[in-house]
């Protein structure tokens, strides 16, 4: 269900916690599974639950509680823009407008070619660098302007 590399990564996470608390690794395990599969299908959640010896519903609780898990397929690149107060004061709205126009999609949508998904996010703890978005759950792209947005998107496959 998951590749040996993913399982190895999960095992690394499991090792951080006392052996009787494998469940502690579920957040990381779901993240690793999502990285591999692109999103968390029910089977994937069930697999992770089984791998960690927990009930599937307990893993589903986790997968649906935290915002960064994708429970539906998303585009190749997920762009999550923070629109919280600090970011809004500092120009998040125009960044969003520009992104939406450029990609032709709204929040929660994916471009028809499947390359981009746009999401609205909550505070990323980086407000000093606003406006900003998070790319694929991994990278914060800060101080956005039409130019920087163009450059970032152009650099993506």
């Amino acid at each position: 269900m998951l590749t040996p590399e993913s399982l190895k990564k999960i095992d690394r996470e499991v090792a951080k916690y006392p052996p009787e608390h494998k469940q502690s690794a579920v957040m990381s395990a779901l993240r690793i599974a999502q990285d591999e599969k692109g999103w968390l299908a029910p089977e994937t959640i069930a697999f992770v639950a089984h791998y960690l010896g927990m009930q599937p519903i307990a893993a589903q609780e986790v997968a649906t509680f935290y915002n960064m898990y994708d429970l539906k397929p998303v585009g190749k690149h997920k762009i999550t823009v923070c629109t919280n107060l600090s970011c809004t004061l500092m120009g998040a709205e125009s960044a969003v407008e520009y992104l939406q126009r450029k990609l032709g999609i709204g929040f929660g949508e994916t471009t028809p070619d499947g390359r981009f998904t746009l999401k609205e996010g909550e505070c990323m703890g980086a407000c000093g660098d606003a406006p900003l978005f998070q790319l694929n759950n991994k990278k914060i792209c800060a101080n956005l302007s039409p130019e920087t947005i163009d450059a970032i998107l152009a650099g993506l496959d």
Binding site: S24, L30, E122
Partner: peptide
């Protein structure tokens, strides 16, 4: 020390 990565929940 181990790092635990959150996943989006204030």
């Amino acid at each position: 020390i181990h790092a635990h990565h959150g996943f989006g929940a204030y």
